[in-house]
């Protein structure tokens, strides 16, 4: 099934300057950069969920903020519904912002503790001028609360976030997003801070609103096991680059990149009778380098040889929609 394309990202880069410090200023030498997001391209179809998986420091959060232009990208293009976001001025950007929303990891931290549930939602309605009268506002807020299953609505209407459980707080955040009827939502680790028993409930809610309002999602996580149940496709990130991308079940059953293999093998197994083989890779994610002339995974890779220290591997097609960047595969 070919989906309609909603978002298309090409050669997106985000470099951060490295500050030199007081004494460094008097030293000669070129300005150095951290390549947080380094030449990423992908597209997302209608109602599709694309997962970005990686360890901390791999650039997945920087990428998501860059996509919404909360951070200005260094270069590249982001096409949303046929329009290049990077070409828009701030006034036009604001019009588009309504349709591109974000759900954050920390539900309590992203809600104003001094606003009740209905006030939080009302603020969103007012900023985007969705209603003309207070009665109309109330209707929109009530609908959103019903949609995210904060029921009965009267019970939650005047509650402050501190009195809600983590799952309920996250539902308020989701309500605040869907009241705007977005077309594209980035969910940045939306369940990693929630209790295990409420995670699945929140994930099912995301699935429901995706179908109902035709939303395309980016799901950012370090947790492959929830990604399996949420994502249509998965992109594995390592140090600012996509190292493997493809359909979820294909990646999980046939991982090709050594880093993907290690990530999958590292996930703990719930069945105590199954023993997991140890991960062959060593060390931990280094600080993101600047310019590098080798494969970024080279220092940790068990299969690396001279070829890998010379040149960066490009993404190659190895199956239906399945791409990998590795010289050895």
């Amino acid at each position: 099934m070919k989906r309609k394309e909603i978002v298309r990202v090409e050669n997106l880069k985000k470099y951060f300057k490295i500050k030199k410090g007081l004494f460094g200023r008097f030293k000669k030498g070129e300005q150095q950069y951290i390549h947080a997001v380094d030449d990423i391209s992908f597209s997302i179809g209608e109602k599709e969920v694309l997962g970005f998986i990686g360890e901390s420091g791999c650039g997945k959060s920087t990428m998501s903020r860059t996509l919404l232009r909360l951070l200005e990208p260094t270069s590249g293009s982001i096409i949303f519904n046929g329009e290049d976001l990077l070409a828009l001025d701030s006034k036009n950007l604001r019009k588009h912002r309504r349709y591109m929303q974000m759900i954050f990891q920390d539900p309590f931290g992203s809600l104003n503790p001094r606003r009740t549930v209905s006030d939080t939602l009302r603020q969103t309605v007012r900023i985007h001028k969705l209603a003309a009268t207070i009665a109309e506002e109330d209707i929109l807020i009530k609908e959103a609360m019903e949609e995210v299953e904060l029921l009965p609505v009267e019970e939650y209407w005047d509650k402050y976030p501190a009195l809600l459980s983590g799952g309920q707080q996250q539902r308020v955040s989701i309500g605040r997003v869907i009241i705007l009827r977005p077309k594209f939502v980035i969910a940045d680790e939306p369940v990693s801070m929630l209790d295990v028993s409420v995670r699945i409930g929140v994930l099912k809610l995301l699935e429901k609103i995706k179908e109902k309002f035709s939303i395309s999602f980016i799901y950012i996580t370090h947790d492959l096991s929830t990604a399996r149940y949420v994502c249509d496709r998965i992109a594995i990130m390592y140090l600012g680059k996509i190292v493997e991308i493809g359909p979820t079940e294909e990646i999980l059953s046939n991982p090709v990149h050594p880093y993907t293999q290690a990530l999958i093998a590292a996930v703990p197994e719930i069945d105590p009778t199954v023993k997991i083989k140890n991960v062959p890779i060593k060390g931990y994610v280094p600080v993101v380098p600047g310019e590098s002339s080798n494969c970024r995974f080279y220092p940790r890779c068990p299969y690396a040889d001279e070829q890998c220290s010379d040149g960066t591997p490009a993404l190659r097609k190895i199956g239906t929609d399945h791409y990998v960047s590795c010289f050895k595969r």
Binding site: I200, S225, R228, E249, E269, I270
Partner: peptide, 14 residues
């Protein structure tokens, strides 16, 4: 409700 990465993809119950 445990999402397992290995084996058959089961239907999760929240």
């Amino acid at each position: 409700s445990y999402p397992s990465i290995r084996g058959e993809k089961k239907n999760l119950v929240s």
